[in-house]
Design a protein around this nucleic acid. Sequence first.
DNA 1: CTAACTGCTACTAAAATAGTATCAGTTAGG
DNA 2: CCTAACTGATACTATTTTAGTAGCAGTTAG
Lengths: 133, 133
Amino acid sequence: MKLLTKKTDYAIRILAVLTKNKNRFLSAREISSLQNIPYQFIRQILRILLQHNFVVSKEGGKGGFKLNVDPKNISVSDVIQYFQGNIMLSKCMFRKQLCHNRSTCILKKEINRIEELVEKEFARISIAKLTKT
Amino acid sequence: MKLLTKKTDYAIRILAVLTKNKNRFLSAREISSLQNIPYQFIRQILRILLQHNFVVSKEGGKGGFKLNVDPKNISVSDVIQYFQGNIMLSKCMFRKQLCHNRSTCILKKEINRIEELVEKEFARISIAKLTKT
DNA sequence: CTAACTGCTACTAAAATAGTATCAGTTAGG
DNA sequence: CCTAACTGATACTATTTTAGTAGCAGTTAG
């Protein structure tokens, strides 16, 4: 049961670090060494965070990344969305062949219910909450 | 977010079929065609179910597998245990390097909490419940 | 005796995750 | 106006996990 991949985990940690340094640009290199995340990997993650406007960037010397949203308004499930795809993806792939099989359908229903539960729980955890001392 | 692997999913479906045929031995071949599960794959899964005494087997012609427990007493999380390993495995792998980083620890704590929640939910779903018409 | 079974071991294939390399373009600061 | 320190973007490779296969030895009903 791996709820979060490393990418997601790193992304959250990056956002947490940026939250603690709201007012300046942190370079990929800097965050990488602060959090022990491989440099090239962090660059990839930062680009995704950038694309989804979680952060803004500044190019050139002394450039880097800065938070672009209120950490109260980013939840772990928002991050999951972009790094692991939609949290709710099991749409009864067995429908055609197997819905005559009642137990399969019930299982899918239960899984969906639990996935929703997980999603809600992650939605309640904001980056702000994680960085609160 | 994939809560169940195919192996687990199949295992549950196998147990459900066996529940519906409590009083006779079903061969791997039979279950395979009933549930559209690849034959060799199902054999693997059945062997694991056997090793953990979920089922008993009979060798030779007309042999096969039969449920060995009360389906009320098998939960989805029991099955997960054997096919996906312990549901609760994230033991703060970052402890050494990162627990000075408060946010990481809080995240781990939250993940653990959610994993526990998932485990409890799956524990409440028995095979009997899944096969109830 | 043999076809239909299971027991067991050891594979291969495919997909997802994790991590790397590299080049082009930007900019602060000497 | 050069250059070192940056980001933008693309395209890889490596590792791990999941999914599925092959095949032989031994058992048993008929």
